[in-house]
């Protein structure tokens, strides 16, 4: 059994009004404190290499994708957001994606594709904003997904670092 001990109130507390005035002085003082709200579009969210934004594809120096269209990310994706059609290529890696589509409306930014990729071809970028007028426009194809190496470099280093831990 729990016995709750009630605090005996002083006369000022029982009169109620002094306590109300005390509370009101607190709220009044708060009005002049600095605001904590972020003015979002003008003040974007801070991002760093740990930020798990939308997945993006890594381009090699020659401009081709690092992806070999093995389909592991497609299989790992819990939201079935990724669609890949592969094709043969004359390059050394022999296969490349003909079509690589991520439906950003389905993507849940979980990062499983990034973990599944054996060729370090897909990374979670720091890009978080997603808006469009049609559903089709939010189905990103290769042109919208590809990013140069310098853009993805911090994330690549970070992933390499944490993978080295085991």
């Amino acid at each position: 059994m729990v016995i709750v001990k009630r605090k005996t109130l002083t006369l000022a507390e029982r009169l109620y009004l002094p306590e109300i005035l005390r509370g009101m002085s607190i709220t009044f003082a708060k009005m002049f404190k600095p605001k904590v709200t972020r003015q979002y579009p003008e003040e974007p969210l801070p991002t760093n290499e740990v930020t798990r934004g939308q997945p993006r594809l890594r381009q090699l120096i020659d401009g081709n994708l690092a992806c070999v269209s093995c389909g592991l990310c497609e299989a790992a994706c819990p939201a079935y957001a990724i669609t890949i059609d592969g094709q043969e290529t004359d390059r050394f890696i022999e296969r490349e994606p003909e079509k690589f589509e991520i439906d950003m409306l389905r993507c849940i930014l979980c990062g499983f594709c990034e973990e599944a990729c054996p060729k370090d071809a897909i990374f979670m970028s720091t890009e978080l904003e997603l808006a469009g007028f049609t559903r089709a426009s939010l189905k990103y194809d290769i042109d919208k997904l590809k990013r140069t190496m310098p853009e993805l470099a911090p994330r690549m280093d970070y992933i390499k670092r944490i993978n080295e831990r085991w």
Binding site: F28, K30, M31, K33, P34, K35, V36, T37, Q39
Partner: peptide, 10 residues
């Protein structure tokens, strides 16, 4: 406005 200011908002 005032409610926002009292809650440290804009």
């Amino acid at each position: 406005k005032f409610s926002a200011w009292m809650q440290l908002r804009y």
